[in-house]
Write a protein that binds this DNA or RNA. Structure first.
Length: 420
RNA sequence: GGAGACGUCGCAUAGUCCGGUCGAGUGCGCCUCACUGCUAAUGAGGUAUGGGGCAACCCAUCGGAGGUUCAAAUCCUCUCGUCUCCGCCA
């Protein structure tokens, strides 16, 4: 939810933001109108309530002769109050809907859509191979690390088993990610993957992306697509000391509803994967600096994995509704000769915090905090990229130095070492 | 899954049986002032959140949603959560 006070002061900024996102600027004016309507409805109801209170309390002090007349007046007023409260509730609901329809105000993101990102930098050399490169599924199958056929047999398309070194690689990556998060001051968290509707709604995932989300109808619970959801809801309704940083590990579930035919091979786009996610609660004034820190920690991690990548400043039209700005890190995927998103960090400013009621004490009272999230390691994709980038002509895969201690000191993964 | 207890202003609690004087007492914590050469101790005052108003002040909120009533923290219904006991289980 955007700040209504700020909106009233400078509606043009919000209109321009809508323009940049390719969204309708008229929503901003609808929101302003709804806010005014609500204010009027509340004023009317407040005045009636005050009058009713006065009359009501005079009932008990009235003499027996006055009593019937006073009661009659009180009853009439009670009916009017009820009417006014119905109007107020309607105005509040209308405001809520108008409010939900307006995404966060973008801050510095390039205008335009998905293709209009700006490349901020390249890190590492795009590798070249003197042999025919294989994709991660071929490599993983040969290593006995990835089994998508049985994944499909057991669970359907876009599911996979990680087996042998694949499973060990996942655990190694989780451990490395958690260790580096702890070293950077994060509190490690194992988060629930099932959440109530409020948590889902509060983080903005039931808006445009509702079709992406798995829902358990029988229990009115949702499967999270990222631990951003439980980590953001973790402190909902609370007053916090800042900053707070959490590194959450959880499974992530995505329906991939609109992605038929896209990335169908291997484990680049699956319905279930595990992820270590960073989540920060900081003062609003510190949000941009924190965003840079999150990006830096992501870059450090990819560098530790010896992966070449580029950093994107994502365009306004490609931001989530909660985000004011977003940076993606894309690693090089040799088999497809293209860049693949491995991490993404968003500055949600106070947008999520307003919805979730997360505040902090300042000299001028309680104020919403800023929330930011960033991928530290999306395990499945990272495994896919690692296998491809570090493949060798003999079918073995180089293990980055940072991971070696976590894989029994091995410098390479070799076919045949683990049972198929 | 069965039985019971509970959910009140940062924390702990009173108030709920018998509706109005309860937006709400007390203790702790915190803030201000006084006093003591520092600290501690003591005394006085202040200290929930949101909305509206220049202000005095007004309105809403006692887990949530409904209902009864002129009037609800208080009565009724549903719901969510927590705890205890029993059963079951990784």
């Amino acid at each position: 939810m955007i700040d209504l006070k700020a909106l009233r002061d400078d509606p043009d900024r919000a209109r321009a933001s809508q323009q940049a996102r390719g969204d309708d600027p008229a929503k901003v004016d609808a929101l302003l109108a709804a806010a005014d309507a609500r204010r009027n409805a509340v004023t009317v109801a407040d005045e009636l309530r005050a009058e009713q209170k006065a009359v009501s309390s005079s009932v008990r002090t009235a003499t027996p002769e006055e009593r019937p007349a006073v009661l009659h007046r009180a009853k009439a007023l009670a009916a009017k109050v009820k009417e006014a409260e119905v109007d107020q509730a309607a105005a509040e609901e209308a405001l809520r809907l108008a409010h939900l329809a307006v995404p966060n105000v973008v801050a510095g993101a390039p205008p335009g859509g998905e293709a209009d990102f700006v490349v901020l930098e390249h890190v590492g050399e795009v590798p070249s191979y003197h042999f025919e490169v294989r994709d991660h599924l071929d490599i993983g199958t040969a290593l006995g690390a990835i089994d998508t056929e049985r994944g499909a047999k057991v669970s359907g398309s876009r599911f996979a088993f990680l087996t042998g070194d694949g499973a060990l690689l996942e655990l190694a990556l989780v451990n490395l990610a958690m260790a580096s998060a702890v070293a950077n001051g994060f509190t490690p968290v194992i988060a629930p993957a099932l959440v109530r509707p409020e948590a889902m709604e509060g983080t903005g995932f039931l808006g445009a992306h509702a079709a992406e989300v798995y829902k358990l109808e029988a229990d009115d619970l949702y499967l999270v697509g990222t631990s951003e959801v439980p980590l953001a809801a973790y402190h909902s309704g609370e007053i916090l000391e800042l900053p707070k940083r959490y590194a959450g590990f959880s499974s992530c579930f995505r329906r991939e509803a609109g992605s038929h035919g896209k990335d169908t091979r291997g484990i680049i786009r699956v319905h279930q994967f595990d992820k270590v996610e960073m989540f920060s609660y900081v003062a609003l004034a510190d949000a941009e600096a924190e965003h840079q820190r999150l990006l830096q920690w992501e870059k450090d991690f990819l560098t530790e994995l010896e992966l070449p990548f580029r950093v994107l400043d994502v365009a306004a039209g490609d931001l989530g509704s909660s985000a004011a700005r977003k940076y993606d890190c894309e690693a090089w995927l040799p088999s497809q000769q293209r860049w693949l998103e491995l991490t993404s960090t968003s500055n949600c400013t106070d947008f999520q915090a307003r919805r979730l009621g997360v505040r902090t004490r300042t000299e001028s009272g309680l104020e919403p905090v800023a929330t930011l999230n960033g991928t530290l390691c999306a395990i499945g994709r990272t495994i896919a990229v690692l296998l491809e980038v570090h493949q060798r002509a003999d079918g073995s895969v180089h293990v980055p130095k940072a991971l070696q201690p976590l894989l029994g000191g091995r410098a390479a993964l070799t076919p045949g070492l683990t049972p198929a």
